[in-house]
Design a protein around this nucleic acid. Structure first.
Length: 499
RNA sequence: GCCGACUUAGCACAGUGGUAGUGCACCUGAUUUGUAAUCAGGGGGUCGUAGGUUCAAAUCCUACAGUCGGCACCA
């Protein structure tokens, strides 16, 4: 039947269904097709609340080696109201799009000559640095030592680590005038192993925690690039913890606690953890993978137990890194979208491959276990997630520009400058707007730029040493004494870990 | 990388074969203003890049690049 119609893919499906198994065909008027079912008895059952959304190519059976078919996307709801709600949700996501907000708030831009790379503007870079400073404090407190390793190393180094074999296609390389081939680092781990290897290490040095805000380069497929969320050059809050085998549980739990407390500081409390196990393409013996997977499974069980079941988990077979299995931390944002950020990976392979060892109690050389972990993951991506989560309305401590002092008449300029200096002295990020414009115009402009605090000052305020406070998202105006305002905003702008 | 669409001024967009436009932004002048757009004037584009068709190309064709939506990928 399908052969007569020349439908080769259908024939393939029919052939795949074993003898004796039911094969179902549904029909709708003159149209009929193969389907596992069930189908509606009539298209009338869909009702009017449906919408065709888009069409796009999709690989036959999800494999890029196969030909592509055209797929038409449509969606239907029981009522028009539900369809409208769904469409509003899409619209809401579009309004929060970090690419749009990044332009409107003057945070960053992209251009053709550097696909997948970011030009950070002063305000965006301020936000980025705020995140790094916060993370640096957290890591120092947790006993990490920050380092910096080379951005480029010779190709043979990456062959030794196994990266060239597994990901060489996606590495940036360059041939120098002396003919040596160098690769931009796609990961920081091999560099950190070199630092570990420098000088003999004792079991007494473990756990040894090496952290780096390392910028890594990965030649991502052109079609996968997406604003800040998927780029070719990004900064990881990366760390490698060198330990003995019996320290795995304790260290992974410490990482877990730090991870959850950090996410909480950004308002993410709905966390979900996935365990990814050995992939097909991997290095190392199976008995080591058995140990590593068991260790992470134990950690995951303990984490769930401690959270009283609040933390949901899932298993992703075959999704681990080539050197070890991983736990992946997924956060839920303000409009319910999920973002994978942090990762904890247990690795029995890399240290050995790169010749790292420590001296144990019996003076024997032992290969350490490595934990790879990142909490923000990619700083660039995390910045994008924050922009979307807050829709640009950052809490005061994160806002790149926290306060604008806008004058009502030019007579108030000297007082406005005084106000600015008072806020600067308190460590706040503040600018004056003394342009010859109406206050309504200034309020509109700074509101659109999502400045959290607008202080209007006219002669009334100058004489009384007050400011008129207007918060982003509210029409309300509060007249307050300058000194009180500075104190209140200084307190509010304090990062959560310093408060 | 694959399928499809798109690319015109800083931004948002109009212009389907015959002398490149609108709004906002920008610059100049006037206005000194009390909480989401004051008024008037002015400057700004080899229409993504490179070829081709045509008397004539932003417009039609080809290639390349980038972007967008999916797919695949994501150490």
């Amino acid at each position: 039947m399908f052969r007569d119609k020349g439908e080769l893919f259908k024939i393939e499906l029919v052939d795949a269904i074993s003898e004796g198994q039911d094969l179902k065909i549904y029909n709708q008027g003159e149209w009929f097709d193969l389907c596992r079912g069930p189908h509606m008895t009539s298209t009338g059952g869909i009702g009017k609340a449906f919408k065709l959304q888009k069409f796009a190519g999709a690989y036959w059976r999800g494999d890029s080696n196969n030909p592509q078919l055209q797929r038409i996307y449509g969606t239907a709801f029981a009522t028009q109201e539900e369809l409208d709600a769904y469409l509003r949700q899409i619209e809401e996501a579009e309004k929060r799009d970090h690419r749009k907000l990044g332009r409107e708030m003057d945070l960053f831009h992209f251009q053709e000559e550097a696909p997948g790379s970011i030009f950070w503007h002063p305000k965006g870079w301020t936000l980025f640095q705020t995140l790094i400073n916060y993370m640096r404090r957290q890591q120092q407190k947790a006993g990490y030592m920050e380092v910096n390793s080379p951005d480029m190393m010779e190709k043979h180094f990456w062959e030794l680590s196994g990266h060239w074999e597994n990901y060489g296609e996606n590495m940036f390389t360059t041939t120098l005038p002396d003919e040596r081939v160098f690769c931009c680092k796609p990961m920081n781990c091999p560099g950190h192993v070199q630092i570990f290897k420098h000088g003999l290490k004792s079991y007494r040095d473990l756990p040894l925690k090496i952290a780096e805000f390392g910028k890594v380069h990965r030649y991502e497929p052109s079609g996968s690039l997406h604003g800040l969320l998927r780029v070719r050059h990004f900064t990881q809050d990366d760390a490698h913890i060198f330990i003995t085998e019996d320290q795995i549980m304790a260290e992974c739990l410490k990482i877990n606690d730090l991870m959850l407390s950090i996410y909480k500081d950004f308002g993410f409390e709905d966390i979900f953890i996935k365990l990814s196990t050995r992939p097909e393409k991997r290095v190392g013996a199976d008995h080591l993978w058995d140990k590593a997977e068991k260790a992470l499974q134990d950690v995951l069980n303990e984490v769930t137990k401690r959270s009283n079941g609040r933390i949901k988990t899932a298993l992703q077979p075959g999704e681990g890194a080539f050197y070890g299995p991983k736990l992946e931390y997924v956060l839920k944002d303000a409009i319910g979208r999920e973002w994978q950020c942090g990762t904890t990976q247990v690795d029995f392979n890399l240290a050995g491959r790169l010749g790292a060892f420590y001296i144990d109690e019996n003076s024997d050389k032992v290969t350490p276990v490595m934990i790879h972990r990142a909490m923000f993951g990619s700083l660039e991506r995390f910045t994008g997630i924050l922009i979307e989560n807050f829709a640009g309305h950052f809490p005061l401590w994160l806002a790149p520009l926290q306060v604008v002092v806008a004058t009502i008449t030019s007579e108030a300029d000297p007082y406005a400058n005084e106000v600015v200096e008072a806020f600067k002295a308190a460590g706040l990020r503040v600018e004056a707007d003394i342009r010859n414009e109406k206050i309504g115009y200034k309020v509109r402009e700074h509101s659109l730029a999502k400045v959290p605090v607008i202080l209007a000052v006219g002669m009334r305020d100058a004489e009384a040493r007050n400011v008129s406070v207007r918060r982003l998202g509210s029409q309300e105006q509060t007249v307050m004494a300058l000194a009180d305002t500075v104190a209140a905003f200084k307190k509010e702008a304090t990062p959560p870990d310093l408060g």
